[in-house]
Design a protein around this nucleic acid. Structure first.
Lengths: 340, 340
DNA sequence: CTGAAAGCGCTTACAG
DNA sequence: CTGAAAGCGCTTACAG
């Protein structure tokens, strides 16, 4: 039998005699033969491969996002090429991007959060990019395809809940402000306080209700100690992630503060462990897994469109976070609070 | 200029005139040309690509291991193809393996822990595998290349520390016993107790000192409650991971038990958050990142050997865990303990 | 319904 | 030092 007949059988083409097809299939089975994906990609100019660029894989957020990307990619029949940026704010993306393109990926998922100047390369490189690319976790922009969580909404949900619980002096421990996500969560905190008439100055100018952390538990502990020094009568704190909130609670325990009676605490991310912190931590849940899945779904859609000849329109997808209330912020005795 | 001259320039061959080399380089630069990795792999029969099979990417352990794999692979100049098993105990690895081989990977890292029968395929498939493969987290075996942490040692370290603190009734909450790691940690607990003459029966036959969890915090909480019901005078518990230990501590708080005075607790994994639990949790540290790096280093070594014509010898690498002591198990008032 | 020819984008001998 | 020829393992027209 000739090679192209085998090719026809493998690709389920109709123009093969049943008998031939049967015989070829039998031999394929017996030899455990499988076609070279490489040769196939080369000739078809279609690799069924997606490039994924990630950063901070040692943290749980990026891993869960990657998990969503992998799941959806396998469901769509795509194989993943994985690359990692050495630092979140790296702008040295040329070797990475070149390597992915050399492997003829059909599309790219840029699963690196927007931090300081790490989107600068976009202006230079994006116009010449031969394949669709989706960005995760950055400011939506009509020029690109972006999938993000509404972090500002998350911050608002947290603070509005605290207000409903009777809290009035609500502090904030933010992530590093060169992170877009950190700025958005802080903005949510600010707007909620302003709407309630509890933040008269436009930006808490003395910074009395706010301190900056670096996402780690250690920084949360430090930031809370600093916050207590400059701010009195604090009755609640919205912390920009669960790890820092854990550090805050440890510091509060050591100060003899009771949570939530003396101090209500809300985190962000809703780690699986948050429900087992002491006390169980209220948190804004963001679905990293869905973020990854949505990105791949949109990317594959754009690849198909591009392959059919038309240029795909950029799309922005925003995922709404949800507040999960636990002991650290509920059943506060309001009377006690009002006395203070 | 002819294609093969360009090829020579790109591959830094000596036999090109300096002037020609300069001109070619300039054009490459100007056109931002990059050779197709696909075509190259096809002709060289060497893809500089590694297949990675992982499972449970939504958990922090597998992610950190993957992080180590990625870091080392990039340092060695290899690109990664990432696949995920749908379940830890999946034995349906044929499509996965076939896909990796179709992409002509030069080697495979099997970063899936040994769970129930998920190594059965080895006997059938391994002999015919055309590329080296390294297994992570399984029982070392002279027939394969394996990189593992010494989980049994970890269990012993934890229990010996508790004994040194004066604890005598030391319980264990294990992971699911179809996991090799769970069995090893339990075995470490048992041998340490036996050496101290504190476990007369070979296996705590009534199971009075032991309960099985499923790694989650929720299961830790349940398991501890069950353990308290059947076992009195418990003064310490060695828990097979930090998440379950968190659940144990929550249940202990709710029962009014003081940690470590009434109950000492030690976990396993040493999550970054463990130092900020309440109280800060003692834990056996296993370096997932190093596990991943070591696996890739060994794999690349074997690829080079195979390429030079000889068949590589299987190698077993064992990484020693380290106990990190924190408040949850230290400065126990021995007098108080002895009274009970 | 089946096979001979050409080509995807490279690299490896082999000539000159 | 440089180029013409052959081939990696496939698929896509084109003949028959």
């Amino acid at each position: 039998v000739s090679p192209q007949t085998v090719s026809r059988v493998i690709n389920d083409r109709p123009d093969v005699a049943d008998e031939t097809r049967r015989r070829v299939k039998e031999v394929i089975e017996r030899l455990d033969y499988q076609p070279s994906a490489l040769a196939r990609s080369l000739i078809q100019q279609h690799s069924y491969t997606l490039g994924v660029v990630t950063a901070g894989l040692k943290y749980i957020g990026p891993s869960r996002t990657l998990n969503g990307i992998v799941d959806r990619a396998e469901a769509e029949g795509y194989t993943l090429l994985l690359k990692e940026l050495p630092r979140f704010n790296s702008n040295d993306i040329k070797p990475l991007l070149d390597s992915l393109l050399a492997h003829q990926v059909d599309g790219i998922v840029w699963a690196v959060p927007e931090v300081s100047e790490n989107r600068q390369w976009l202006t230079d490189r994006l116009p010449a990019l031969p394949v669709p690319i989706i960005f995760l976790t950055m400011q939506p922009n009509p020029a690109y395809s972006v999938v993000s969580v509404d972090n500002q909404l998350g911050g608002r949900l947290a603070v509005e809940h605290l207000l409903a619980q009777g809290c009035r002096r609500i502090g904030h421990i933010s992530g590093p402000l060169d992170w877009w996500e950190a700025r958005q969560r802080m903005e949510g905190w600010r707007t909620a306080l302003q709407s309630a008439g509890l933040l008269s100055h436009s930006l808490d100018p003395a910074g009395q209700l706010w301190t900056e952390g670096n996402w780690s538990s250690a920084s949360g502990e430090r930031a809370f100690t600093a916050l207590l020094e400059k701010s009195t009568h604090l009755d609640a704190v919205f912390v920009a992630n669960d790890q820092m909130a854990l550090g805050v609670m440890l510091a509060a325990h050591r100060q003899g503060l009771r949570i939530p009676h003396d101090l209500a605490v809300i985190g962000f991310d809703n780690l699986p462990e948050a429900a087992y912190f002491w006390p169980p931590l209220s948190s804004v849940d963001q679905d990293h897994h869905q973020l990854g899945r949505a990105a791949v779904a949109e990317l594959v859609r754009q690849i198909d469109i591009q392959r059919s000849g038309t240029a795909p329109e950029p799309a922005s997808i925003v995922i709404r976070p949800v507040l999960v209330v636990r002991d650290s912020s509920s059943q506060i005795k309001k009377g006690v609070l009002n006395e203070r």
